[in-house]
Amino acid sequence: MVALVLCASLFGAGLYVVMTRREIIGLLTGVEMMLGAANVQLVMLGAAVGGTGATIEAAGLMVLVVAAAEAAVGLALLLALYRRSGRSRTDELNEVNG
């Protein structure tokens, strides 16, 4: 129960970071926190429903790969955006509004 509350709190903290930071680096940090906390929760769920260690590790590894790919693409977008417009904050990017 303590582990569940800890992981849920870490996920909530990541969500709060995503909602309150304006820099894209800050947003990516929050998303990484949410993915990390969700991965621990997935592992806990796997252990709770009686999954084998290898199965749990395979599932966790998949989430890890998704998170790494997301970070790489997100940072590439940030650098491209910064070199193109000199901006790195979400509230300065109002030209993409509909």
Binding site: M1, F11, A48, G53
Partner: peptide
Amino acid sequence: VTVTIVACLRSVVGDALPT
């Protein structure tokens, strides 16, 4: 969101033990 996660998973996870 934190409270919802705990409420939804509490009955399933319980006291998760190390594998």
